[in-house]
Design a binder for these strands. Structure first.
Lengths: 366, 366
DNA sequence: ACGCGGCCGGTAAGCGCTTACCGGCACCGA
DNA sequence: TCGGTGCCGGTAAGCGCTTACCGGCCGCGT
């Protein structure tokens, strides 16, 4: 009978199983891996021993021998602070990265891979060490936006397969992103052409994020097409977070500056902060000011009014990142340097359209 | 000059580094691990070689040698279906598990551990294999509720440190949960005593979830204290999801059954479905029917009215699970079989109270 | 000037697996 | 009956690290 503290003892190895089953370690390994079709009787005895002992093969030894860990590292950015032992963070910040990660997880799982996750803090000045450690424990890396400098990515990609998300391809890493341009152009046209709003602002995200740059450019393009001037500049600089959007609106109202007829936010979280702050000050959305987001995170349809935004295939972004990485790990030749997934405009109430309501939980990500 | 395809070649080992630096592999290892204070000159040469080659030590080999992987496995339940290649899931279902996982990640990171994540599908009938694989790749396991049967947990906990979340302790695994009873009693009293509602129903979660059982019991206790009868039973059976809550309300309205003055939902997601469906049918919350949740997931404060609920220290639940597991891995004696974290009533608008509004994104989990 | 102690750093064993290689045995055909 | 042919399954090497052990060298004390 096993004692409850057994896990403090020397762990079991295939030698123990082999001895118990009266066979050699090779046979145990073969049975466990279904190789070389062992004789039914041998298989039986080994399985019995495994069951009786509760044997679990050591993944590290397996990986070392196989040169395959069946693990992919995922590194994402965490925008939270740890103060004393209270965690405070922007709740919505959870969603985007986590939905991507789940997309990765689902397809990884089908290939027998598991996810090794690690986050990088915004204030972390040397994420290189962490990422190196993850790299050593996995067969390949998926790096979210803003976790490592392009130089750092290049260095690490030289020796490990790397896929970046919403970043930029390098000489040896592949990038997966969604088509910011098309979605943003569609959205901006909807506001300026379909609704005919005379003034519009772009509330930016991180200045150095490729996503933000692409969205800003698409916005500018359409605004120029229509022949008006988009409001941008210092005061319209956000940070992808609700608090950033809120701050921008507060600043503008505090200085008694005028508001545009429509505000295009760099992402949904920013829009949340904007809508909330406008409501606080008695500005009605969409009657006085229309507000739009980008991403279509789940909470977007819980807002009042529901948020008009651009749907990114968040789940699929993750799934694709894994697929690409998987083929790199298998050395199926070097794939395209970049994979771009389509986006689509999602019209709900915050732009000024009348829409019928769909239960917020009935969503499907493709 | 390295070619971009270098990662297809034989990976670097400490032998390569040693040769390049003109020292032995032992020295390389010592420098890399800061052991045995090597001479500054040696250290320099090794570091230079490491830098020049872009060497990353192999985690599997390290783990095998060290008998420590610095990885903890986290297994959670995924409530999504994969149809063709479309993923559909309940968006809010993301939150609870993911917040816990982030709590785990933050503290794990401080100890140099990474998270190996894997989900179990609701329809997965033999999660044992997956979990065994995870167990082999990690130093210990954190199992969310409903991922493995108690018997399965017991088997695996015999050989690996295991911490369960919102489950039940076994002879060799520790459970971490929050104090469902106190929170639910406070909440129910608030509705029945402070508000004086004459009728109240409990909309249940999974019948076999310990959390659900504890919440139901606490509810019953207070209801009995007050001397009224709580509405429960078959028709009030949900499934922890918004769709389940919606279905219950639809059924009741379809059959023209009466509604209670207040509905206590087993969790926040259920409440979301309930509030939405009531609104659809013109039933006002809280004027006609008060609705409450449990968990305080981030989206709770984006609802209209904002949801009155019981705050679980979600983040801390994860953090604590890791701390306990860490001490088990280090063999610091067997800890308490169960750790219970406090909950607290969060009064917002959906119970009928007037509350001033706080920006939904300014949240802190403790 | 010689011996001894301490400090570095090299050699080699071993962590728990997978698998190439090979030997033994049963069964077939001649 | 005997050699050939497969099929199983055992033996042992090797995956890339860490570290116990030991030998060499330098500097000190006598």
């Amino acid at each position: 009978m096993d004692t409850p503290d057994d896990h403090l003892a020397r762990p079991l190895t295939i030698y123990d199983v082999a001895r118990r089953a009266g066979v050699s370690i090779a046979s145990v390994s073969r049975v466990l891996n279904g190789r070389n079709s062992p004789r039914p009787e041998t298989k039986e005895r080994v399985m019995a021993a495994v069951r009786e002992l509760g044997f679990v093969p050591d993944g590290a030894a397996r990986a070392l021998s196989n040169r395959l860990k069946e693990v992919v590292g995922v590194v994402f950015r965490r925008t939270s602070e740890v103060l004393d032992d209270a965690f405070s963070d922007e709740d919505e910040s959870l969603l985007f990265a986590d939905v991507i990660n789940r997309g990765v997880e689902v397809v990884a799982r089908n290939r027998g891979f598991d996810l090794l996750m690690s986050s990088v803090d915004v204030y972390d000045h040397s994420p290189h060490g962490r990422i190196t450690s993850i790299a050593g424990k996995s067969d390949g890396l998926i790096l979210h936006d803003q976790v490592l400098s392009p130089v750092g990515i290049l260095r690490i990609a030289q020796r490990t397969p790397v896929v970046t998300l919403a970043g930029t391809p390098t000489a040896s890493s592949v990038n997966v992103r969604s088509d910011n341009g098309t979605g943003m152009r569609e959205l901006t046209r909807h506001l300026l052409v379909d609704h005919g709003y005379p003034t519009v602002a772009y509330l930016a995200g991180h200045a150095d994020s490729p996503d933000n740059v692409a969205r800003a450019e698409a916005f500018e393009t359409v605004v120029a097409e229509v022949g008006i001037e988009g409001w941008t500049g210092e005061i319209w600089r956000g940070n992808y977070m609700a608090s950033g959007g809120a701050k921008v609106i507060k600043d503008i109202l505090a200085r008694s500056l005028p508001l545009p007829r429509a505000i295009v936010c760099a992402n949904d979280q920013t829009a949340i902060g904007v809508m909330y702050t406008l409501a606080q000050h008695g500005v009605r959305v969409p009657q006085d000011v229309a507000v739009t987001g980008f991403d279509d995170i789940p909470v977007a349809r819980h807002l009042h009014p529901q948020l008009t935004t651009v749907r990114q295939p968040i789940h699929k972004l993750g799934a694709t990142a894994f697929d690409v990485l998987y083929s790199m790990i298998n050395g199926d030749g070097r794939p395209e340097p970049e994979v771009v997934l389509p986006t689509s405009l999602v019209v709900r109430g915050s732009c000024g359209c009348e829409t019928e309501s769909v239960p917020p939980w009935e969503v499907s990500y493709r």
